[in-house]
Write a protein that binds this DNA or RNA. Sequence first.
DNA 1: CCTCTCATGTAAGACGTTACATGATTCA
DNA 2: TGAATCATGTAACGTCTTACATGAGAGG
Lengths: 186, 186
Amino acid sequence: MSIKYAILGLLQSKDLHGYRIKQLLERDFGFMWTANYGQIYPSLKKLQQDEFLTMREIPQPASPPRKLYSITPKGKKEFIDWLNSSPEKGLMLRDPFLLRFPFFGFGNTTRALEIIDEQISLYEGFLKARQDNLSERRRSGSYGRLVAELGIELNEVMYNWLKHARKELSESNLLPDEDNCNDDEL
Amino acid sequence: MSIKYAILGLLQSKDLHGYRIKQLLERDFGFMWTANYGQIYPSLKKLQQDEFLTMREIPQPASPPRKLYSITPKGKKEFIDWLNSSPEKGLMLRDPFLLRFPFFGFGNTTRALEIIDEQISLYEGFLKARQDNLSERRRSGSYGRLVAELGIELNEVMYNWLKHARKELSESNLLPDEDNCNDDEL
DNA sequence: CCTCTCATGTAAGACGTTACATGATTCA
DNA sequence: TGAATCATGTAACGTCTTACATGAGAGG
């Protein structure tokens, strides 16, 4: 469970409701984490049951009442303990496109180029969104901002690599493989 | 399901058994995917039931017989259809450390520096392993190699960023936040 | 009129991880 | 003696995604 600590972390500085938590997670962790209501609402309920959070309802004119959650001392302790623990090994870059790319030699090059082009404009969009997001941040010396900067750098590397890969492919530097998977004998 | 297509892809060029599939997945997709037996063996069984694969047993002197899987024409079709389809939006960089970093302002700086140092040597190790892996690859014009190169570049960016983040922290350019999470009002 | 945003949630299923169980061989 | 490698798997548990359901108000 890690959404648990993301929630506790966000609640350190401010009381929040589920909908808002999702927005913040998307803004601040969006390039590494996706949050959906199917996780957030049950997590909040569970966190409340475990007495890490308390909840109060704020009536709203045109929507269901907001459920504002506050972190308890017990919750703060849980969070700080986690913060001081060693993170698990980690790093996992999951991009369905990258899973596919190594196999492009088995398919047709024209289609592969199309897919790469889709990907290039996707990442172009991501990059723009991230740069906008960064320029909106006020505090320059914050931890969150540093992570956002990393996100942009990683995005740029991906983008440049895509362009490079496209070039290699269109110049036929990549062999259509009927057996390109370098296997040392078993 | 994506392990499904990774398996079908590997079986394009060669018949393989589960254990070997895990090795190859780790070598070629390790930085984006982790495969474990709990997924691989059931997947192979299911793929066989769906007639995408056939299996034959090869007796082994000192271990259970290998179950060698071959892709069927039906499996090839399934794979090529997937290859030509558009990949889902994607990109997700999951690193438990990065989830934690934005919150370091709530904890203690000394401990944060320790954790960053652990992370630096982790990534140092990853980088070395990847470079070794790359230099062992024969074919230079292959798709897989390009992806491996991307992996190294991304690793380097992470590594340099960690060093930079460490420096910022140790020079106290990062404020200990009691309220650093930039929230526009809700 | 239709779609978007705000705001709550649930249920089913897909996917992934961890720990266990077996057992011979090789290497330190 | 102990650990690693080869080789198979299962069961339980956790996590995550997808689709659904509700309903008011704002803006094109």
